[in-house]
């Protein structure tokens, strides 16, 4: 029987209360949201916090809003809610692509957007999706609120810039016209972690790629993105040749590790090919040729 070791339990009733509790418990406390990463790790004693601060009651962190050209997603938004949201699908289909292949419907009912980002698993899909669209993380602590570009949010496997005493509260994504996005993943079986995955966001000016973001999952890319591929794309024509060149750049720029999901060469190949497919689909969507 797998059961976590003993811990003290605190149920936060507001964000301010959560911050107070985090200050009281210090670095020995962990925030628990959906718990679908942390509780399994606690069962295996890979995580052994003295206290859990439960933020499941914080309805104030459950929202998806589009206002003034910014899409705001509350950190306690469940995966299922992000997947079901039509505004997200309209402006950033990359998130619906990614959510469809994250775990399974029952897990998505419980797991949260903020929890996934804070878990910082190198194979986590939303990290690359948010990196592709250049999101901003909002982190609150005892001293107030600060914003962190998502490409500076993750500092290594299972590590983020969120300090003990701080809480991720929101993710902001700027919405710009003329663009679209897509996410492509290869998994061994439905619901598994990615062998590799790639996300692309493009903004077109006629037939030219005005701006682009490329996110990579599970292939050791720094901050889940590929600036090298983005440099190839910016200002280039939106053609198969350009996609292929960006795919090569993405493959060269990542550092996959061999594991039970595949050898380095295979993962590198996937990083390139999935970048091409995500770009192809994102451009087709931006042109209104594909849903």
């Amino acid at each position: 029987m797998q059961v976590p070791a003993h811990f003290e339990y605190e149920r936060a009733t507001s964000v301010d209360h959560a911050i107070t509790l985090l200050a009281r418990w210090g670095s020995e406390a962990r925030v628990v949201a959906g718990g679908h990463s942390l509780i399994p790790m606690m069962k295996l004693r890979l995580a052994r916090p003295e206290a859990l601060i439960d933020i499941n009651e914080l309805a104030e962190l459950v929202y998806i809003r589009l206002a003034d050209g910014v899409l705001r997603v509350g950190a306690m938004t469940r995966h299922a809610e992000l997947l079901a949201n039509p505004v997200v699908g309209e402006h950033y289909p990359i998130f619906h692509d990614a959510e469809r292949v994250i775990a399974d419907p029952i897990v998505r009912n419980r797991g949260t957007v903020g929890g996934s980002l804070c878990q910082a698993d190198p194979s986590e899909d939303l990290s690359a999706a948010f990196a592709a669209v250049d999101a901003l993380a909002v982190v609150r602590g005892p001293g107030g609120e600060r914003t962190v570009p998502i490409r500076e949010f993750h500092i290594g496997p299972y590590e983020t810039v969120v300090e003990p005493g701080e809480l991720l509260t929101e993710i902001r994504v700027p919405v710009r016209p003329g663009g679209s996005s897509a996410y492509e993943k290869v998994e061994r079986r439905v619901g598994d972690w990615a062998v590799a995955a790639a996300g692309a966001a493009v903004w077109l000016d006629g037939d030219t790629i005005a701006d682009a973001g490329v996110g990579l999952t599970a292939v050791g890319a720094d901050h889940f993105c590929s600036p090298a591929a983005e440099a190839v794309l910016r200002g280039a024509p939106a053609t198969e040749e350009t996609f292929a060149a960006a795919g090569r750049a993405a493959a060269e720029s990542c550092r996959p590790s061999a594991d039970q999901r595949g050898p380095v060469d295979y993962k590198r190949h996937l990083a390139g090919e999935l970048t091409v497919r995500a770009l192809r689909r994102a451009v087709a969507r931006a042109r209104g040729q594909e849903a």
């Binding site: 439960d54 897990v107 009912n109 419980r110």
Partner: peptide, 18 residues
Amino acid sequence: TVTLDGTPVKSCTVLAVM
């Protein structure tokens, strides 16, 4: 799998206190 407020969840990964 059980329902929590009507939505299915996996009860091996939910704390009773939740």
